[in-house]
Design a protein around this nucleic acid. Structure first.
Length: 419
DNA sequence: TCTGGGGTCCTAGGACCC
DNA sequence: TCTGGGGTCCTAGGACCC
């Protein structure tokens, strides 16, 4: 059996851990730049805040319904996620951390366990030790455990937050209940097409022919179908080094000067370099993109990207910033109001197997230099040591007006208890 | 004024190899 | 007149996930 454990309204729940006065109150969490809603407590959902809602359009509603608004605090969410995953890891030797708030457990050799009790114990322990509420779905395949989890979450009171699909009847009933657009792996496009052919539920979907499914949704759709039929097709996946790494941001204001973009692009490039070093990879190519605000249709629009093949693989921030700003020169066009930019590195080779070239190579001194920088930044705080081209006057900042303290990752933010 | 930021996999078609 | 058969690699585009 597989278990899917999912944290309920994770970001909103994290904000509540150190603010118990907010339990039962509506909460939303906003994306970077306080742009749009990326998490909602149940109360906020009930108040009518949709996922992805642009914050500025909902300010009145936030006020009317006394909704608490938070800027995204990823340091807090990341740390809380670690704590939850560490606890879940004690419940099975086989775990796949699927996202910041979800894990699959493979339950092999648990035949003599009462899985419902086991799931309830997980819930209690995670809640008691971290303050985060979770839901547990258990079923013979991954896709079905997703379905079970949905039922556990939707009917928390009846299920106690744990639902097991362990019979044919339960499987069929669950699939007939689940709308096709809510099936894991069926996105907007496929849902629309399937609905067009009369497929309304997950049950309708598994009754389609294999051939039809594969023709329309490729082998991915077929695997999903089999998994939903109860034939184990998807297995736990093990973490692999990333194949692409990106750092991209929207800006608080529009930028018009190349100088401003150059500063952003070099910061993004050094950030990509850090992420590369963390997984001990070097990249062989790099993409830079810039674009204007696509939501402002009345303004002149411009959007371009450029892919650069590097002369040698590297993960030096200095070198990547150099290549990235050179690339920027080729695509920057004056006269536009830029709203977003980013750097994406790809085509990796492992650090330890670099093939040196006869003519041009990465600077030999950089690995030691980068290592020293990484160490100092880890010790004294992010970006304490940076390139001169990066944000020399600290003019750049993200809009984060409702940021909560980093309760668990910053000494100065630790809560004080008055006895 | 104001609309996020990361990732993955699969397929088809073209270029190229022997 | 007649023109093989088997591969790989790369890229762009389309779908999906959180």
């Amino acid at each position: 059996m597989f278990a899917l454990i999912d944290c309920n309204n994770f970001y909103a729940s994290c904000e509540r851990v150190f603010r118990p006065d907010l339990i039962g109150k509506p909460i939303v969490v906003l994306s970077n730049n306080d742009g749009c809603v990326i998490a909602r407590s149940n109360e906020a959902k009930a108040a009518g805040v949709p996922m992805g809602a642009p914050a500025y359009q909902y300010e009145t509603l936030f006020k009317e319904k006394d909704i608490w608004v938070f800027s995204a605090n990823f340091a807090l969410y990341g740390d809380m996620s670690h704590r939850v995953m560490n606890i879940l890891g004690e419940y099975s030797p086989e775990i796949e951390i699927y996202s910041i708030d979800e894990s699959f457990l493979k339950l092999r050799g648990f035949e003599r366990y009462n899985l419902s009790d086991y799931g309830k114990e997980m819930r209690q322990r995670v809640l008691k030790w971290t303050g985060i509420p979770i839901s547990v779905g258990v079923a013979p395949t991954k896709a079905l455990s997703k379905v079970a989890n949905r039922i556990a979450k939707k009917y928390t009171e009846q299920t106690g937050g744990v639902y097991i699909i362990d019979t044919e009847e339960k499987r069929i009933k669950a699939l007939k209940w689940l709308k096709i657009e809510d099936v894991w792996g069926i996105g907007r496009q496929h849902a629309k097409r399937l609905q067009g052919t009369g497929v309304k539920t997950a049950y309708d979907f598994i009754r389609l022919g294999d051939r039809f499914v594969q023709n329309h949704m490729s082998i991915v759709g077929l695997r999903l179908k089999h998994d939903l039929q109860g034939i184990p097709t998807l297995d736990l996946e093990h973490p692999e080094p990333k194949k692409n790494i990106a750092t991209t941001r929207s800006f608080e204001k529009n930028y018009t000067e190349e100088e401003q973009l150059r500063e952003r692009i070099s910061t993004f490039a050094t950030s990509c370099a850090e992420k590369l070093r963390r997984q001990r990879s070097c990249c062989n190519s790099l993409m830079v993109f810039i674009h204007t605000n696509g939501h402002r249709k009345e303004l002149p629009q411009y959007s371009r990207n450029i892919l650069v093949k590097l002369p040698y693989p590297t993960n030096s921030g200095i070198e990547l910033a150099k290549f990235a700003t050179q690339a920027l020169k080729h695509i920057f066009k004056p006269g536009y109001a830029y709203k977003k930019a980013g750097v994406i590195v790809q085509d990796f080779t492992p650090e330890e197997t670099i093939q040196r070239s006869l003519f041009e190579n990465s600077n030999e001194k950089h690995p030691a230099l980068m290592q020293a920088m990484d160490k100092m930044n880890a010790l004294f705080g992010q970006q304490k040591i940076r390139l001169a081209v990066q944000d020399p006057k600290r003019v750049w900042k993200m809009k984060q007006e409702k940021l909560s303290p980093c309760y668990t990752t910053k000494l100065s933010d630790i809560i004080t208890v008055h006895v």
